[in-house]
Design a protein around this nucleic acid. Sequence first.
DNA 1: TCTGGGGTCCTAGGACCC
DNA 2: TCTGGGGTCCTAGGACCC
Length: 394
Amino acid sequence: MASPTILHVDMDAFFASVEQLDDPTLRGRCVAVGGGQRGVVAAASYEARKFGVRSAMPIFQARQRCPHLIVVPPRRQRYAELSQRIMQILGHFSPLVEPISIDEAFVDVGGCERLHGTARETGLAIKTQIREQTGLSCSVGIAPNKFLAKIASDLNKPDGLTLITAEQMMRFIDDLPIQKVPGVGPRAQQRLAAMGISALGQVRGFSEAQLVRRLGAFGRRLMELARGHDDSPVVVESEAKSMSSEITLDQDTRDRSLLATHLLAQAEAVARDLRRHQLRARTITLKLRSADFQRHTRGQTLPQPVDSADAIYATALGLLNAFDLNQPIRLIGVGAGNLQSRQVPLQQELFATEENQHRRQWEKVDRALDAIDERYGRHCVMRGTLAEPGKTKK
DNA sequence: TCTGGGGTCCTAGGACCC
DNA sequence: TCTGGGGTCCTAGGACCC
């Protein structure tokens, strides 16, 4: 039977813990990271959780539950910095590290026993090093596969270490509440409940065909997990598949020129992101959320991939212009998908059309802005239309 | 004072091609 | 004059995760 060599390392209340780390006056207090006029909680300190504050909860609701809650705006740059440090530490224990979000990673320590000891010993050493080098705590789950390692890390939070052996595995699966299975959200849980399934073990009482009929491809995956099968490997490299920028407006609006101004800023952000990663995108997506909270997307796939703010903005604006604003808009965003490496040469660059000349000029502007950003920091220089948000020249 | 921002994967229908 | 069928790409939406 497979020995437990997969570790799942999960930082405890990451954003909130970082804020408490950097600002000692926040320690021991109820802290929520999040904000904006219509924001939600991105992370809550354990003190705040005692009052029922949870992530994804609207801030106003969190304040109702916890009147002395201190709400701190997120500092993504800082979290990313610490995340990098943590991933580096993990890299010292195994070459097989798979970051799955800013504060979580899988580590496969199979074959590393001689260097770092058993998986449990490695887990303890990781916790110690992360604490010593960053001042932050994490929880570690160890199991024979990724699925169970992830579940395990959640069992003794915060600052825990949980090991599920191959012998304990099936007993554990049998009793595992179905909503704890990654991928089972409210909808799937509802459908499974309708089948009388509340624990993962009960899934085995059905045929795969029955599960697939009700849950699609996920039904097959669920059956595999219920049987204790999960051979998904720890994958080191994974390329981004999309990049996006979006914002929830302080107030709903139907003002197209205001929306266009946001689109321009977002196109610049996405374009910069693409260029930083040496990528170009062929598909541009406009994302809107209307006042009734319905989500709408409109996409366009271009004949050639792009990485300029100009091209992304033009495409997104075209999509916005074609969209009926029946309802006021509460969120607007731009996404770039269908990504490909910049190394692939563009066919149209072979031709000196007027359009290409125009495009090349804008590319020069982008490169210049990139260089200035690099040297003097972001937002040092910006387009006139963005200097005064809400106003667009006609 | 309802419900962020950044992602991934799946589904399903239509266009289009052979 | 009855409408095959498979593959791929594109688009829109939905579920889910942190």
